[in-house]
Design a protein around this nucleic acid. Structure first.
Length: 861
RNA sequence: GCGGGCGUGGCGGAAUUGGUAGACGCAAGGGACUUAAAAUCCCUCGGGCGUAAGCCCGUGCCGGUUCGAGUCCGGCCGCCCGCACCA
């Protein structure tokens, strides 16, 4: 096909349609109870300054869904905002002497322009930034209400202290013993902190996961493990000869009580601290334990160590047996009661410990099929509690593990010295941060009244503008006047809380704020009732636990305080893969940017500047440190947004990591030009728009219509199932058919118009600018975004003839063409008539013939 | 250590969920057009044998179920991710 049509100019065309959509307010959503709603949300970005390819992928995926659902007749809400509080702004303030707000808002302006150049169908009228008083004011109101409802509280606790960032970190923010942002080794400190009572909902957060059917299973599993429910027993042990409160432990293996040979206390356990008061050696051991880090390497290498306190407790079921009480470095204060009983034969840690200190190792559960009389535990504990029979255990003898657990629990409960307990790994969410650039916690410390919430009419408690960042620590605390105020209760001089909230708080309810982004209350009830839950949430797996769990907690807390009427914020969740790129290094091992290298004809990669050879490394997630980043702005500038979007959707399934390549982007560009020529070249052959379908199309027209309607069905199904790469492939196939199409017979012009309009509509959600432009080329005055998704004619999506594979004894020997749903006997006869089949049978007797209609014929000899 | 996922051409990946393995794209090679290049168009493209028709092999490895296995089951190997002294 030759063409005189000028090349498609993405730059001019894209700006034009973006302006058009904006002028027509195409994407501004309004509640309309008469229409079904669809809330599409991508995780909002941190305004770092520039968008990266991960954003492009994220927002492209969301935009395809939003535009598709819109075409399907849904009232779509698709908003965007900024997760705008956080440490980088303070670092910038310190390094560049610029106020965090100024830095943040400049970044927002820049990134907004970049996002707008992508042609996303976003409702910008609902834009919000979490650092704006108009947002955090409402967050403070939520905090006060949570406080009044008992869901926010203050307590002294051991915290993870980041010595570089000078702030407290939640457990979730400590990765391998290091701060998630600074990477510094985390220390333990005791501080008074604000907490959200997420454990109030432990059980509900766990069980409700079962109802989240449109969440990926791995994410649900991660949350399940994070919440970490276990069923066990709290048991009390009486001390020997001491007038102390009994020692309470938590265990899930009470069936092994007859194998107990010691007790172990956490170094932070009150009983351990009590011993240390009169025992310098104990105090020294405790201090040693607290110096220990919590990183993986440390835990791995650290020997199980203990200190014998000299205390003894009585075995609850064996008179005269006394168990030594140790302080041990492997017992956690935060889990259970901070004390355990050790059964070395059936717990690896206990076994290591017992071997070190020469404590008895008595097996009490015998594996099935092993002789109980000779069963011994060597260096490996027997921990399988599904199989196994109790031995050496008095009244438990011969029981299974569950039976033994029940028996022990019953006796301990009857005695009043035990209680069946459900325990969770999940701990309350510590939200205090000693930072400036965060939402101030709206509480006031009064000498007379204690801790008092700021009055609602005084909200927001606004951040002061005049702050310095030249020394570590919290600028709010150092500020000369800010924290001094009057007590809302008694009016006396009082002091503000100077901690600000963890930025995860900001992102735990923004999706609700979007429903009524300009309302005077945190949320307008009718708006959230209409729009929530988010129908489709899209973002990276890195938020699989924290952000999503906190948001789920927030919905429950907001429900408790009557802000919303539902528990689960996100009905559907999709976690996308990362965008990767090859990595390059020079001969000294320094990372190189992609644009610093060139590939020669010999395949060798060299430095563009000096010609010095470079090495190509594996494809990895784009990161500044490895310099394998490609700037979306440059791509959009060179090729246009549609090409970036199209390539993002092609080839790789969205949940998997994808590799960005120049060749791939080029391929997308060529495809866009091809479509452009295709539509322009065919346009003169079209029937007039709006003309009625001629009767009884056949021949080439019918074939084209079949391709058209198969494409409609296939692409729609694929988009619904998030199989965008498959949808792209189908559009390619369809446009290949159109490229080969030569109008000849009656009605071809009509079928061609249908096909071209369909093509444009199908890729419209993916390449919206090209779509609008070609829609205009096809003679329409309307906007493509206002066009409904076409309906597939089911009678055209199935072929009249099918190609059926023919096997002889399971080996492919040929194919036959048959009418759809042909009789089995006909298919069998046609199969047997094939030369290749006869040769393969080779005179052997046919034992049976399996015919699966429209699929396969298998002749078994 | 515990939990989860993945393994298909040179590459990204398809495969109607047990029924013609390799759709679609990228890369590569050959050809046409051109003074030339770009662009475009046509052809080839899992491996082996064969002039050919065709035959054999092939979805990480070994085994099993089945008329039939990339898909299901068992056991290995390799890579990736999450959690981690949780009693």
């Amino acid at each position: 096909m030759t063409s005189s049509t000028a090349r498609y100019n993405a730059k001019v065309v894209e700006a034009k349609w973006q302006a058009e959509w904006s002028a027509n307010r195409c994407f501004e959503a309004e509640e309309d109870p008469k229409r079904p709603k669809y809330y599409v949300l991508e995780m909002f970005p941190y305004p770092s300054g520039r968008i990266h390819m991960g954003h492009v992928r994220n927002y492209t995926l969301g935009d395809v869904i939003a535009r598709y659902k819109r075409a399907r007749g849904f009232n779509v809400l698709h908003p965007m905002g900024w997760d705008a509080f956080g440490l980088p702004a303070e670092n910038a303030a310190r390094d560049q002497k610029i106020h965090p707000a100024e830095w943040t808002y400049a970044n927002i302006a820049n990134m907004k322009a970049e996002l707008q150049s992508m042609g996303l169908s976003l409702d910008w009228s609902r834009e919000l930034a979490t650092c704006h008083p108009g947002y955090y004011r409402h967050q403070q109101k939520l905090f006060v209400d949570f406080y009044k409802a008992g869901l926010a509280y203050r307590k002294e606790s051991w915290v993870n202290w980041d010595p570089v960032d000078h702030t407290v970190l939640a457990n979730e923010q400590v990765i391998d013993g290091r701060g998630w942002r600074s990477g510094a080794l985390v220390e333990k400190r005791k501080l008074t902190q604000w907490f959200f009572k997420i454990t109030e909902f432990s059980d509900d957060l766990l069980t409700a996961l079962n109802g989240l059917e449109r969440w990926p299973d791995p994410v649900r599993l991660m949350q399940r493990n994070w919440i970490g429910r276990s069923e066990g027993l709290r048991m009390q042990f009486d001390y020997v000869g001491e007038k102390r409160e009994p020692l309470e432990i938590y265990t899930t293996r009470h069936d092994t009580i007859f194998g107990a040979s010691f007790m172990a206390l956490s170094a932070e356990h009150p009983a351990a601290l009590a011993v240390a008061e009169n025992d310098p050696k104990a105090a020294e051991f405790i201090a040693e334990c607290q110096r220990l880090g919590t990183s993986e390497e440390v835990i791995e290498k650290t020997e199980k160590k203990g200190y014998d306190t000299g205390l003894r407790v009585k075995h609850p079921f064996v008179d005269g047996v006394e168990l030594p009480v140790y302080i041990a470095n492997f017992v956690l204060m935060e889990y259970g009661t901070g004390a355990i009983f050790g059964c070395p034969a059936h717990d690896q840690r206990d076994l290591d410990f017992a071997r070190k200190y020469g404590l008895p190792v008595v097996p009490v559960v015998c594996p099935k099929g092993v002789d109980a009389a000779t069963f011994e535990v060597g260096t490996e504990a027997f921990t399988d509690n599904d199989s196994g029979i109790l031995i050496n255990s008095d009244f438990l003898g011969g029981m299974s593990v569950p039976e033994a657990k029940a028996a022990i629990a019953e006796r301990m409960e009857k005695r009043g010295a035990g209680e069946r307990t459900i325990n969770y790994r999940l701990r309350d969410w510590g939200i205090s941060r000693q930072r400036y650039w965060g939402c101030p916690i709206p509480m006031i410390h009064c000498d007379k009244c204690g801790i008092v919430p700021e009055r609602e009419e005084n909200l927001p408690v606004q951040l002061p503008d005049d702050v310095e960042f030249d020394q570590p620590g919290n600028p709010l605390d150092r500020h000369p006047t800010w924290k001094h105020t009057d007590c809302p209760e008694c009016g006396a001089k009082a002091v503000r809380e100077t901690d600000t909230m963890d930025t995860f708080v900001d992102s735990s309810w923004y999706f609700a704020r979007f429903c009524s982004a300009r309302d005077d209350d945190p949320v307008a009830r009718d708006a959230v009732d209409y729009w929530l839950a988010v129908d489709q949430y899209i973002g990276g797996v890195e938020h699989a636990i924290l952000h999503l769990l906190y948001s789920r907690f927030f919905m429950r807390a907001m429900r408790t305080c009557s802000f919303v009427g539902l528990d689960e914020p996100f009905a559907g969740l999709f976690t996308q893969g990362m965008v990767c790129h090859e990595t390059y290094r020079d001969q000294n091992g320094n990372w190189l940017y992609p644009e610093e290298v060139v590939q020669g004809d010999d395949g060798q990669v060299r430095l563009a500047s000096t010609g010095e050879p470079a090495t190509v490394g594996r494809s990895e997630a784009m990161s500044k440190s490895k310099k394998n980043v490609v700037d979306p702005g440059a791509i959009i500038d060179k090729y246009g947004a549609d090409i970036a979007r199209w390539f993002m959707l092609s080839d790789s399934p969205p949940e998997r990591d994808m590799e960005w390549t120049d060749a791939g982007a080029n391929g997308a560009w060529r495809y866009v030009q091809r479509i452009w020529r295709l539509v322009n070249d065919h346009t003169p052959n079209l029937a007039a728009a709006g003309s009625a379908m001629p009767n009884a199309l056949d021949g080439t027209a019918l074939e084209l219509r079949r391709a058209t309607h198969k494409a409609i069905k296939g692409v729609g199904d694929d988009i619904e199932r998030f199989r965008f790469n498959r949808a792209v492939a189908r559009i390619h196939e369809f446009s290949n058919v159109l490229g080969d199409f030569k109008p000849r017979g009656d009605g071809d012009d009509w079928a061609l118009r249908e096909a071209l309009e369909t093509l444009v509509t199908l890729f419209g959600p993916m390449m919206p600018h090209l779509g609008e432009e070609l829609w205009r080329v096809l003679g329409h005055e309307t906007l493509l975004v206002d066009r409904s998704w076409p309906a597939a004619d089911e009678t055209l999506t199935v072929d009249e003839t099918v190609t059926i594979g023919v096997q002889v004894s399971g080996k492919m020997r040929g194919t036959i063409e048959m009418p759809r749903d042909a009789e089995k006997a006909d298919a069998e006869a046609a199969a047997l008539a094939l030369d290749t089949v006869q040769r393969a049978i080779g005179g052997n007797a046919v034992r049976k013939v399996i015919v699966v209609p429209n699929r396969i014929v298998n002749i078994v000899v």
